[in-house]
Design a binder for these strands. Structure first.
Lengths: 208, 208
DNA sequence: ACCTGAACACCGTTCAAGT
DNA sequence: ACCTGAACACCGTTCAAGT
């Protein structure tokens, strides 16, 4: 059906096609049959390269994590780590459904080990004890994952959202939300994200 | 089929049964047909009370959020907010799959408005400007959502996890991860969660 | 070695028919 | 008003059969 495919099938080509398909049509639209069609092949052919749909999803996450690059060494450890989380958040924006997959259904084999190793190295060299480095890692990870998900899925007080019931918000029932309304529209989310990172870094410095 | 049901069907009863079913069997196991069976009724009957499966999922999230209680007023605003996030995290532990649903598929009508209003009130009374209260809200929310998801789904350097490739981790390829290994097993996650909250609060105090 | 057709056991959902 | 049987258009997956 699709013009895409005469090249031979391979795990890699299947995964990359699936990633593009989900970015375009959304995760719910992905089926083995449709992915087959996208590759000019019957659904059953996919099973020669991927054991089942679960493994396909894991593979897509793997593709994404593989594209994540560790920022170059820097004499400013905080900047290096900030940059790593910027890239992580950008990945969420570029591939929202697959990012969600990474969060809700992290693959057994976690391909983020290299990133974690590099992160810890940076923190250890900055003088943090192993235990504190672990806490810092989890705090910054948690914050970034949560912030990105909130952006992607539009929870956490989005401007003008029916999502927060903004339309029906009566000013006397919800005075604090109401006074916030003008601010919601002109917050720079990039800056806010950095601000949040800064809060955690400040806390870390205080305890170091 | 199930002994459960002779009481009349209702939206509420459907949602509560669905929540219990998902807590027990997992989200993937939930189908209209099986949920019907659970209620002693054919699947099609459910459509008299719920427009479709999406609305059913939204309703389940709604049930959960409805059970979340705002902690009592307190002279210590930080403690009050901490307690609210503790409850939120506990909800994630008690209902992991539905919590994931809340994150990946937040319902259009967000029933968290009362919580948000109360949160903002507390922060405003503690002296924060509206804009800063918004940033604080988003930072603490993001952190808690991310931390809870990491726990529930076991990402973020879990102990002994094949998930981080822990088994094959050679000590010279991943020295920092290796030195961390002993610590992974004896970290108190409750304490670590509080520590992370503390980092953000410290940052906020510094900027207030 | 890789692809496929047919089949199986499941889905969500519609709709006319029953009470 | 609420429940249901039958049907439709889809799923993921298996397997014997083809090349």
């Amino acid at each position: 059906m699709a013009i895409t495919g005469r090249r031979p099938l391979s795990r890699r080509r299947i995964l990359e096609t699936a990633v593009r398909f989900v970015d375009r049509e959304g995760l719910d639209a992905l089926s083995m049959r449709k992915l087959g069609g996208e590759l000019g092949v019957e659904a059953m052919s996919l099973y020669n390269h991927v054991p089942n749909k679960g493994a396909l999803l894991d593979g897509m996450v793997e593709v994404l994590l593989g594209e994540l690059e560790v920022p170059p060494e820097s004499d400013n450890w905080e900047d290096r780590i900030r940059e790593a989380y910027r890239r992580f958040r950008r990945m969420a924006h570029d591939h929202p459904d697959i990012f969600s997959l990474l969060i809700t259904r992290p693959p057994e084999a976690m391909y983020g080990v290299w990133l974690a190793e590099e992160f810890l190295k940076t923190l250890r060299e900055a003088g943090f004890e192993p235990r504190m480095a672990l806490h810092a890692f989890r705090a910054l990870n948690s914050y970034t994952v949560g912030y990105a998900m909130a952006e992607i899925r539009n929870f956490a007080l989005e401007p003008g959202g029916s999502r927060m019931g903004a339309q029906q918000l009566s000013e006397d029932e919800f005075p604090r939300l109401s006074e916030l309304k003008p601010h919601l529209e002109d917050v720079d989310r990039d800056a806010e994200f950095e601000f949040g990172l800064g809060l955690i870094f400040a806390g870390l410095r205080e305890r170091a």
